[in-house]
């Protein structure tokens, strides 16, 4: 899909440039965009490393195991049909904690493990309700500190002011995602 989007953006831009007589602006924009991308990734680099560094400490100190206990009760509501001592539920909880702390490097392998465990339980090529619920939760962002956005906002008078709005919207998104998944599951 991204191939069509990118190709479309490029060709439509150049066609529109000739149509609207903005050829020179578009030619400059191409170079400006390329330069901007390097500046952008350099300006993100420091904060990104700061955050992955801090999160590595959290990971080694056992934060995932610690907070997994706290999130356990919630997973009983989300996945009522999974056995409480199943490996799938362990991986699901740990994946959610890793996401909350923004440990993307840890969250994805845990999520894939959870998916594999769930498919082992369901033994079918049609996704089980648990798999759908777990995937939907992962598409809602749970991150406590939106570090990339904060890094993008360097230069704002208060780069951090968006944190609480982000939490509120994340909770709304997650609530809609979970409710929708539960309702669609009932309907089937």
């Amino acid at each position: 899909m991204i191939n069509y989007i990118w190709g479309g953006l490029m060709t439509v831009s150049i066609a529109a440039a000739f149509l609207f007589g903005r050829v020179e602006e578009v030619a400059n924009a191409a170079m400006q965009g390329a330069t901007e991308a390097v500046t952008l990734s350099l300006s993100l680099l420091g904060v990104m490393c700061l955050w992955t560094g801090i999160m590595k400490i959290a990971q080694h100190a056992g934060v995932i195991a610690l907070f997994s206990k706290l999130l356990r009760p919630l997973t009983r509501f989300l996945f009522p049909r999974l056995p409480r001592d199943s490996e799938a539920l362990d991986a699901i909880v740990m994946n959610m904690v890793a996401n909350i702390f923004g440990m993307a490097n840890a969250a994805t392998p845990l999520g894939l493990k959870a998916m594999k465990e769930l498919s082992r339980i369901s033994k079918s090529q049609v996704a089980s309700h648990e798999m759908c619920m777990f995937a939907v939760i992962n598409t809602a962002s749970l991150q406590l500190i939106p570090s990339t956005v904060i890094a993008l906002r360097q230069g704002a008078s208060n780069p951090y002011e968006i944190i609480i709005p982000v939490w509120i919207v994340s909770v709304i998104t997650l609530a809609v995602a979970v409710t929708a998944a539960k309702l669609f599951a009932l309907k089937e």
Binding site: L9, I14, A17, F20, A29, A30, A37
Partner: peptide, 17 residues
């Protein structure tokens, strides 16, 4: 990918599209 997409988006805006 950031270079590819930022070039495309900057061009897309500059062209008026």
């Amino acid at each position: 990918s950031l270079i590819a997409l930022l070039v495309a988006i900057t061009m897309f805006r500059a062209s008026g599209a």
